[in-house]
């Protein structure tokens, strides 16, 4: 199942991590994303400029065919993947079967995308 939500998160960032929050990356220098093994931060449209559509689901359900901007494994010891704002507000959540989950991320722009697709597995 694909979950989708439109949000305007503060700091123009969304964070993808296990339910325990992980270790947030240093979001510098400017880049489309920043990551640690337990948390991924992805830049999005500046909140004053509008909403960003965030989708979360199994990668095979909506693999757009394009090359993802991010493709790596995320530690998920609680077998959950949360998409949250910097302030910890939950945007989307999905259960995963393993303690390490392959995460692929596609965006419609490298800088300030307003569409972010997060594929799991």
């Amino acid at each position: 199942m694909v979950l989708t939500k439109k949000v305007a998160p503060p700091y123009s960032l969304i964070f993808i991590a296990d339910a325990d929050g992980g270790v947030a990356p240093e979001c510098s220098p400017p880049a489309p994303y920043w990551a640690t093994s337990t948390c991924i931060a992805v830049g999005c449209l500046m909140s004053q400029d509008g909403d960003t559509e965030v989708s979360l689901g199994k990668a095979r359900e909506f693999d757009p065919g394009a090359r993802p901007i991010f493709d790596s494994f995320l530690d998920t010891p609680n077998r959950k993947v949360n998409v949250e704002t910097a302030e910890g507000e939950l945007i989307l959540q999905a259960d995963v079967p393993t303690e390490s989950t392959r995460v692929r991320i596609w965006t419609n722009e490298l800088q300030e995308p307003d569409k972010i697709v997060i594929g799991l597995g």
Partner: peptide, 10 residues
């Protein structure tokens, strides 16, 4: 803003 967001998150 991005850097601050990372710090707030941490």
């Amino acid at each position: 803003s991005n850097v601050q967001g990372g710090k707030v998150r941490a």
